[in-house]
Design a protein around this nucleic acid. Structure first.
Lengths: 204, 204, 204, 204
DNA sequence: ATGTAATCGAGACGGTACGTCCCGTCTTTTC
DNA sequence: GAAAAGACGGGACGTACCGTCTCGATTACAT
């Protein structure tokens, strides 16, 4: 197998990289992912196609990095953002707060188009799906695992519950509603999810 | 606006339709959705491209119909299938049974590739997403709504719980694990989901 | 070896073919052969690139056919063209007349650019060179062979002279001057060539 | 207009220049002129592309210089070569001898590829054509002019013949046969050319 | 039983985008 | 300050499919 020689990262044009990120995100937002083309990104970024192919393997790769970068930018802009779920002692309140923030983010049009596109591509493209999950999804989910573990310590959650599964009770429904547009998402909705998940559907 | 005259359905070639379904499903399984092309389907089905464009609007449409047809075929083959969730009086048992069957289906390679492809396309293509949800997803979910309503009548589920949200506690996690491959799905997993959803994460 | 299936000639678009010929000749004339691109020809002809690649293997092939067609058009337009060198009995006069006509043609800008381009490409591209020679050059030269043979019958040319070589004495110098622009060509020049060739450089 | 400052010739790397010549000639011989690229020459010569663009304007320029250099090398290697046509008093014999040597050179594969490539490029590229003719062709032809002038002094050639045209009678046919491959070249062929040119085609 | 109109397999067509190859320029580091 | 290295913006390559458009050949209905 002939591996093409890796390009020299130290010579890379930062300006072009930023322009490519911006163009990719803009195009996905404006014309949608399927109509976003490498050629279009290059033209919009004022860049040669080869500059894209030199550093990325596909438009999906570009978009993933652009999206990760967007997340970092937003994080920095928001000041030192916690990267942890608050722990006020009131689990229900903490989860509801975080999920409300998540809802707001999901409804932000700047995030929506690329996030949806990446999720879709990840379903069908194994390699990208793997990256999407490990780089974006898992770190988020881990925060819930941590908070639930803490709740188990204080007795707010049953000690035998598997936190990795438990978090799915409120996270997955939200994700699915948003991705598949089966129904609108709202703060009331996520509040309800938390209540159902914590206290069960069966009468107490 | 000139609407193209609807073709004469009575003259439609049943043989071609079936060949197109078969070719579409086979190709999606073999080379994946993105590499499946209308041209490829036509060639494999021994059919002119126009025959596809005459009856469907895109490869996604073809695949959706092919998949619906596949479902019907499977249903008929399986004899009278319930199209309802059993109601033995034991809600937990009934849900676990249905979800176990669902897991088995999701792991069937014949279903996996096209289902995943359609889900992915639906995320990014509004019109198809809508159809996917209404024709495939909603009917399934409605069965859970019905069963949960019945459970509310018998007092097994709190009367104030919204069944449409309640079902998401166990259905969405399964869907997401399967679609995004965040973790493997199994009978044990869905059993756990049902328990958590019914009895809550908080200690009783 | 996988030979791609020959396209169906009967379905070929005559209009596109003509448009491609016209575009190719125009572009070679306007921007020169090296800057003439398949893409440019397609755009100018209002044709998809594939339509060119379906019927020709390269821009050189296109130009060769376009040029042959141009010759046929011109021939038809000129009414019954001779396709033979006149035979008035006066060999010198006949050759001078034909060569003067050739000079006029070589100086016609409509012929010059494509002819020069094809000659150049033929030097470096064996396959095209072969075609250029057999389809364009040889038929022309054969006319001289015929006329010289006739001259040998009447005693105007030595019977032991090889006509195929003899004709080169006046044809090749003209060709080379024109192609390589070593010196201008004119009626006087070709007249001189005929005289030198017939009567020799040595004193009589 | 800003003319780029001429680089400092005294600092030029002789080693690189030689390597570039060698690479250019080798590549033209191996893959042909059209597939010979500046990038390829640079890589093969172990040289940066800029080093080529600093000293030459195009691959044609490089090849022309490389070819001229090759000629000088060959000349030096062959010992002090005459750079004049021998003058034994027998014009026919002298011309035949020189033309036989020329035939040998034309058939030498080391000369063939680059010479043909340069001739072809010259047909289509005015500037290079001009250089090719003045630097390579004309000096050669001038030798014939000189020898024919001398022959006119001794009465072996008619005094009113224009030597510049006369030489074309035997030189151009040879050139054309070789370049356009209309027919093979050989010693017998050039001998015949000389005879025909000197004594004419008409019976004496 | 025949005429006729629509579907069918086939595939050429005008296009768009692909991913690759080079162009000629520019920048960085080394000698 | 030339040289090796190679990233850059750009343009064209030749290919793959798109969705539309003719072509006969077939087919199934209305006469």
């Amino acid at each position: 197998m002939v591996k093409k020689p890796a390009p020299d990262t130290t010579r890379r044009s930062e300006k072009s990289r930023r322009a490519i990120y911006a163009a990719a995100l803009a195009l996905v937002g404006e014309v949608g992912y399927p109509k976003t083309t490498v050629e279009g990104i290059a033209a919009r970024a004022g860049v040669g196609k080869q500059t894209i192919y030199r550093w990325w393997g596909s438009k999906a790769d570009v978009l993933l990095e652009a999206f990760l970068d967007l997340g970092e930018q937003a994080a920095q802009a928001a000041g030192q953002e916690p990267y942890a779920i608050p722990d006020t002692g009131d689990l229900a309140a903490d989860l509801k707060a975080v999920l409300r923030a998540t809802v707001d983010e999901l409804l932000d049009p700047r995030f929506e188009a690329p996030a949806r596109a990446l999720a879709a591509e990840g379903l069908v493209n194994d390699q990208l799906g793997r990256e999407f999950v490990t780089k974006l999804l898992e770190p988020q989910l881990q925060l819930y695992v941590d908070r639930l573990r803490s709740a188990q310590d204080t007795g707010a959650v049953r000690p035998d519950a598997d936190p990795r599964i438990a978090l799915e009770l409120f996270v997955s429904p939200l994700t699915q509603r948003w991705l598949q547009r089966t129904a609108p998402v709202s703060h009331a909705y996520t509040d309800t999810l938390v209540d159902y998940a914590l206290y069960g559907l069966a009468p107490r």
